[in-house]
Design a protein around this nucleic acid. Sequence first.
DNA 1: CGGGAATGATTGATAACACTATTGGTGGTG
DNA 2: CACCACCAATAGTGTTATCAATCATTCCCG
Lengths: 236, 236
Amino acid sequence: MGTTHRTLHNRVLAVLGPAIAAGEYACGHAFTLSGLEQEFGVSRTVAREAVRVLESMGLVVSRPRTGIRVRPQRDWSVFDPQLIRWRLAGSARMDQLRSLNELRAAVEPGAAALAAERGPADERAQLVVLAEQMTLTGRAGKLDTFMDLDVTFHRRILELSGNEMLSGLSDVVTEVLVGRTSYDLMPRQPRPEALRLHTAVAQAIRDGLPDVAEAAMRAIVTEVSDALKGTHPSQR
Amino acid sequence: MGTTHRTLHNRVLAVLGPAIAAGEYACGHAFTLSGLEQEFGVSRTVAREAVRVLESMGLVVSRPRTGIRVRPQRDWSVFDPQLIRWRLAGSARMDQLRSLNELRAAVEPGAAALAAERGPADERAQLVVLAEQMTLTGRAGKLDTFMDLDVTFHRRILELSGNEMLSGLSDVVTEVLVGRTSYDLMPRQPRPEALRLHTAVAQAIRDGLPDVAEAAMRAIVTEVSDALKGTHPSQR
DNA sequence: CGGGAATGATTGATAACACTATTGGTGGTG
DNA sequence: CACCACCAATAGTGTTATCAATCATTCCCG
């Protein structure tokens, strides 16, 4: 789960990436390869490979005579898992969490509907079991295991959607749920209403009722976003 | 809008990327650097830079002694714009279009709600004008300009959501809408109901009514997915 | 027959150099 | 004075050669 394996250009990336992602270098800022060589004490080749990766993520553009320029945020590949991790690790963590949470809120109802429509029957049934476990551990106040169950619950639904892009968001959802608890944005004890809704989603998916599943899931995510209300990220 | 500028490793990528994305190389297939050097007639450095980019997209993993192995699809960064383009260009185009369309169907209602909540008032008002133009050109049967308007309509809403990740999907939506017409998945003439719904979405967003906007947008996307019904991509 | 060390294939990393594109200045010209 | 063509400095781009680190395989020894 740690980044890719310990190679030199990855270590350069691990410093340069987060720095750029955090906005430490203004939009037009220009690096030079030789500058990077010196700053990190690496060979030109390594510096170039790091830049290539940053370029493929849209963070920078590299042109002769001009150097390596930081591109405007609008051009970044905001869905790149690496970039998401960098931003979650940096000072923009809170903003990134909010973005991800909104994305998740927008996506999960639709995913639940798809899961109800076309997930394999046995796996759909499993969801109900998961929801029951959530209710139990939630009432017992075991927050840690509750969070784990919550994560797998939402992951499963995304995977059951049968859509590669939606299931590609499961890591994102995990980050959000984990990050939320670590930031104490969760109530001490899961709200009974939330528990009930999770069960409702599970049952609707099991019973193959897309509309019901979608509505119940929407209720879950709107409840969450209500809890975070009032904290809209500055436009920038 | 062509890929990045004409550099050698990009030309290698432009061949290798689509090939892997199209599944021409099985999951565990192993390349070697010297093999790539010869196949493309490039130096080791260039070959490695191409591999670095593929690696950062999760398409391959490069390890000593083992070579460069193709990773399972599950690990690919399916949101990487470059990868999306490659798949749209290749034989998986239809599958990719379906995935994207489902994603869009899942996302847009939520995006419309956010746009209604917090988009700048003047830009929200612009949407109504856009919807009117759509109605006019739609009724007139000018399909080309209608598609352009449709694209900007949906793009605007994503951008108005004020969420960087949602607006990051605007290119995706564009691809879907354009691809759909080029595949004749659109009716000869936009359906009156669809036109009415677009206007409803625009008005709701202008008037700051998230729930109404969300419902109307959901009606739009479900109508579309009903039209594509029955063609679910084969698993894997 | 099993476990661990030798082996060699393959990537990882460095260095030095030639090529090329871009840009910004410079000078000439209308 | 404005504008255009040209030139040169500058950085990335691409090549080659060489060595180091790694790890799947293999083979030998207990």
